[in-house]
């Protein structure tokens, strides 16, 4: 049975429209106008216990809104959502006991209170029994190396230290579900690596279900075999992370070095690539770059045809990386196919 399940989950915000300046503000006061903004638009999603899912998408795509719907902070406009069998917004308090949340840009710790006191407060808030509290704390302190940080108030922690403490804070009550909202934002490489190690450890050790929103591909690649991408409130991809490259990696590049200068490369190539799914992206003196659609033509075919028209000295074939694909998806340069991933060859 899925631990997190959303069906046609929708959240529409009613937003005031204000013209700029004082006149606009005044007009809004007299005759307010509103627009409906759909932040989450019919999302269906299902996570099995122990699954890790990366939830990605450009800024403003609806990631944080989804997380807020799952934590019960926001009430959906339409659709259904269940976490651990509970409807989050109707049972916010019961749901809160089942989840841990880390917001990369906010902290659960209290600014002027030693970390150890903040942990104790959380232990009390979640009503963790003494023996279990000690056991969990001992484990978290050891794995996250928190010992030296315990007597320090949060305001004196570095960002990386604070993040380690916030992770512990989210797990004191041993929740089955952990939401991580941009957790590695601003962390250095070493701290990030350590953070990922810890999540992997908790995942394997405790069977924690993890939902991660991040822009960091390293996070996604290492932590979550499954990626869900949303754009403008809708799921545009849900499948293995590795599949993304296979599915959208059709746009390949070919870089050629010519053995002799060719006066008019485009003209020379027109009969060869005309009507083909290939185009010249860059042509210099003896350099030539082409982009082609790997689904329409193989690199072998293309190279063979090019060799008949041009004196080729060297060839370099560039496969797209996941990062470049995702960047292009964000920028709207690539479009997702209508077919789901399963039907791809």
């Amino acid at each position: 049975m899925p631990i997190i399940e959303a069906r046609n989950l929708t959240k529409r915000f009613h937003r005031p429209v204000k013209a700029p300046g004082a006149a606009g503000a005044l007009r809004h006061l007299i005759r307010p106008t509103y627009t409906d903004f759909t932040a989450v638009d019919g999302i269906s999603l299902s996570l099995e216990p122990g699954e890790s899912v990366a939830y990605v998408g450009p800024n403003g795509a609806g990631k944080s809104t989804t997380v807020k719907l799952l934590t019960g902070i926001l009430v959906p406009t339409a659709g259904e959502v269940r976490v651990c069998g509970l409807v989050p917004f109707a049972n916010r308090i019961a749901n809160a006991k089942n989840i841990g949340v880390v917001f990369g840009q906010r902290t659960q710790l209290m600014w002027d209170i030693p970390v150890v006191e903040a942990f104790r407060l959380l232990g009390d808030i979640y009503e963790v029994p003494d023996d279990r509290y000690k056991q969990t704390m001992a484990e978290l302190v050891e794995v996250l190396d928190l010992e030296p940080l315990l007597p320090v108030p949060a305001r004196q922690l570095s960002l990386g230290q604070r993040m380690r403490c916030d992770l512990a804070a989210a797990l004191i009550h041993a929740p089955p579900v952990l939401y991580l909202d941009e957790p590695t934002i601003g962390l250095d490489v070493a701290v990030k690596a350590r953070f990922r190690e810890f999540i992997t450890y908790m995942h394997e050790r405790r069977g924690l279900t993890v939902m991660l929103t991040s822009h960091d591909l390293g996070d996604i690649e290492e932590l979550c075999p499954r990626m869900v991408m949303i754009d403008r409130g809708q799921i545009v991809y849900d499948g293995p992370f590795a599949e993304v490259t296979r599915r959208f990696g059709y746009e390949r590049q070919l870089h050629l070095t010519l053995s002799a200068p060719v006066p008019d490369v485009p003209a020379a190539l027109a009969p060869v690539i005309g009507g083909r799914a290939a185009r010249i992206t860059d042509a210099a003196e003896q350099q030539l770059s082409l982009t082609f659609d790997g689904r329409a033509i193989t690199s072998g075919e293309l190279i063979r045809d090019l060799a008949t028209a041009l004196p080729i000295a060297d060839i370099r074939l560039v496969e797209p990386t996941a990062e470049s694909i995702i960047r292009k998806l964000y920028q709207g340069e690539l479009r997702f196919d209508a077919q789901p991933a399963e039907t791809a060859p």
Partner: peptide, 11 residues
């Protein structure tokens, strides 16, 4: 304290 001591209190 080396290890956090807890004596639970009302929330």
């Amino acid at each position: 304290p080396a290890m956090p001591v807890s004596r639970s209190r009302p929330r």
